[in-house]
Design a protein around this nucleic acid. Structure first.
Lengths: 195, 195
DNA sequence: TATTCCGATAGTGAC
DNA sequence: GTCACTATCGGAATGAG
């Protein structure tokens, strides 16, 4: 089987992967991303026919029934985050729910991810842009407009190659600099809970 | 002093560098290249006013008096080569005399080099193209035509970035493949003399 | 185009 | 569109008693 179906075993048999599964029922499976791009990074996997739908083609009717699961997943992600990190100034962690406009894994998966992007697995400009450019389709953007260019694969891929932008600053392709910036921002806000 | 004058000490004081100097008189110094790009690679350094002339601007009147030195240098290079290598089929080693059209070292230097380009110091496409493209000005091409594009630095530099070509085959930028090819050709022809 | 160091970029293969 | 590996490509510094 191709790497493009790496998520399929979790959908078909969540019990077999209890170590990585945080929640499941007959509609969804919630797992930890194997290569987390933030301090907390989960994937919400619909189990039914939805698993074959392209993110850019999702309809309101398809996404609405998932909203309660998305909120649940955000809550679980938040709890997982607070198991490890404590805020220095009483702010709450911000959890995003989004889809990649041109994912490489074929089973539909919603990213549930904290907004820090501070992680050893975030290594490349593509990683960064897949969350910090319009390549990331926020859940509330669904359904995409009929003319949205992210329906086209070529345009979506071009978004991954563009210069990295953070807080309005252009970092070109300097991922090392971006990662240092993200790290110092994270460390300014969060402190690890010793356990 | 800038790296661009790395050859100057040899010209001004050849006695001080006897380990690297194979011949000198009041007109020239012949040294081993510090980063040889072939089995044998020497540099012939004119000592007088010629040391400041750009290779592409050399005149016939300037180069003619050097011809006997060039022949001597080729002879010395050949002898040095045969101290280490023996041909498997009685062919002679071919020694080239050439200049780089846009050298990075400012003192005029004529490369005296065997035509194998089999050396650990030949590492990059630029190295290869500096000898195996028109960037290499053969001694008998001097003086260059007035319209020769190699008089322009931009054009000369572009020659270093072009695809590598060997025996009419295009190797794109694949220096690893080119080096393997050069190595097998060298080993097919020459055998090291144990000493 | 001198080298060297570092980092960004690009192609490949995975079953 | 994934990751991991390898290799290629690209800029910057290089000294200075």
């Amino acid at each position: 089987m191709s790497f493009r179906y790496a998520l399929k075993p979790f959908i078909t048999d969540p019990k077999r992967h209890s170590k990585d599964v945080l929640f499941y029922d007959d509609k969804v499976v919630l797992i930890r991303d194997k290569f987390p791009k933030s301090a907390i990074h989960l994937l919400l996997l619909p189990r039914g026919d939805l698993t074959t739908v392209a993110p850019a083609k999702l309809t309101k009717e398809q996404i609405d029934p998932l909203n309660e699961y998305i909120n649940l997943a955000k809550e679980i992600a938040s709890n997982e985050f607070y198991k490890i990190w404590k805020c220095k100034n009483n702010e709450k962690v911000k959890i995003l729910a989004l889809l990649h406009s041109a994912p490489s894994l074929n089973n539909l998966h919603i990213h549930i991810i904290s907004d820090d992007f501070h992680s050893p697995s975030l290594k490349t400009k593509r990683h960064f842009n897949s969350f910090q450019s319009p390549f990331a389709i926020m859940i509330d953007e669904i359904p995409l407009d009929e003319e949205d260019m992210r329906r086209g694969r070529n345009y979506s891929e071009s978004l991954l190659k563009r210069n990295m932008q953070l807080h309005g600053d252009d970092y070109a392709g300097k991922i090392k600099v971006v990662k240092q910036k993200l790290q110092s921002e994270f460390e300014a806000k969060w402190i690890r809970i010793i356990n």
